[in-house]
Design a binder for these strands. Structure first.
Lengths: 230, 230
DNA sequence: AAGCGTACAGTACATTGTACGAACCGTCCA
DNA sequence: TGGACGGTTCGTACAATGTACTGTACGCTT
């Protein structure tokens, strides 16, 4: 008889919706969102494809689920504390998390069903500003502005062809070779040579500049920061 | 014999790479990026699936192509003019264009091969700031900041479940019904009721607030705006 | 022991991208 | 006139994917 092999004494932890989602996230982290198929997911879990459908209605639910998992990793701002450092901390955390799971950025757009972690996140964000005395209107402004910047930065960052250890210079040089031959893009060329090709260039360092500018700008419209309202 | 039907005397304009890309864009506009398959595209062009492969290598090349088509629709800033109005105009144009082709936002991330329109766009952007006396470093800051905001805003906007004529109130109400039962998200609830549910609420109106804040912030570090440097 | 619900697996099918080669069709030389 | 040729389009086929439908093993209650 074919004995049911127990590989290295694993206690055969049973499947669960949570395990399915975590495995899905791991697969996407490893090979990108395109690598996340029901079959790869099932094999990562050590089961057959159709078994995951016992815990999930369809693949869309998996995508919704892992987006919410990503949100759950973002540090929440603490309601009641000074809004500016809290906003900065959560923005930086969000950037780091989205950097670790770049596939999530594109999903943000298509997934319209926020999960509990996403709602908690938004609630803390809004709550922090309201507790700091922001009006509803100003809170709306800040929400749209900060979130757009954070998501957009993560999007731009992920879209840069300079990730992994392949030298930036290589990439840029090949770009130049293919596109800049006719010097049709003089300013882009100058910019690339004088800035992007610098050995210490790091796009992510740009993040803080914009974040500070935005928070400073909001501070001018914000109430006094020492907790007193009106 | 089966006569070859010529539908309404069309002069049988021949296929071309350009027609393929334009048709692909039209299909994506109509049914979303998921509706863009080789078969739907071919049928929109009135040919058989494999015929489009004479003009493109593979589907990825189509995706790269339509992203570049989108960029070609964005109004370019004019190098030499006052940077601030030019930046504002191109940012607003970009927002409108991305709003008309929301599928392009997610593609921005995955498409790493910029086309000529994209490069022209970046060149004009950088050139406008450099001509206004911006240093390379400040140009880099402005580029990252403005582009992140524009893309991020388009992303956030597209992610809102309030598009089409379905009333905002309906959507928000159903959200509340499903999520806010236990009043687990009090601030989000208050925000939704007091702001999002307002009949005249328009998320897109938030765009100008953030854009102005960003441009104002940059202006403080920019050289004098009357074209004189140093 | 009988029955049953939970958790997984097997099989099958429609849809997708695309490789490969054949078929069409106008143009040019004989 | 005819035949060769090269550029364009099509037919067929296959592997990968999501998932519907059905089957089955195993623990628990009665």
């Amino acid at each position: 008889m074919p004995e049911p092999i127990r590989p290295t004494a694993s206690p055969r932890v049973p499947l669960s919706r949570d395990r399915v989602l975590r495995a899905a996230m791991a697969v996407a982290d490893e090979g990108g969102i395109a690598a996340l198929t029901i079959r790869t997911l099932a094999s990562a879990l050590g089961v057959k494809p159709m078994s995951v459908y016992y815990y999930v209605q369809n693949k869309d639910e998996i995508l919704d689920g892992i987006v919410d998992l990503v949100f759950s990793q973002i540090e929440l701002p603490v309601i009641g504390r000074d809004w500016q450092p809290e906003m900065r901390r959560r923005a930086q955390s969000a950037r780091l998390v989205l950097n670790d799971h770049t596939w999530a950025i594109a999903l943000l757009q298509s997934r319209l069903n926020p999960g509990p972690a996403t709602l908690r996140h938004h609630d803390a964000f809004i709550g922090t500003l309201r507790a700091a005395g922001f009006s509803v209107e100003l809170t709306a402004h800040a929400f749209a502005l900060i979130d757009s910047y954070v998501y957009g930065f993560a999007l731009s960052d992920a879209a840069l062809p300079i990730h992994g250890p392949d030298s930036v210079a290589d990439t840029a040089a090949s770009m130049m070779a293919s596109y800049f031959d006719a010097e049709e893009y003089p300013h882009l060329l100058e910019f690339t040579v004088q800035h992007v090709l610098r050995p210490d260039y790091e796009f992510t360092a740009e993040f803080d500049y914009g974040l500070d500018l935005i928070l400073d700008g909001l501070a001018k419209s914000a109430p006094e920061s020492n907790g007193e309202r009106r």
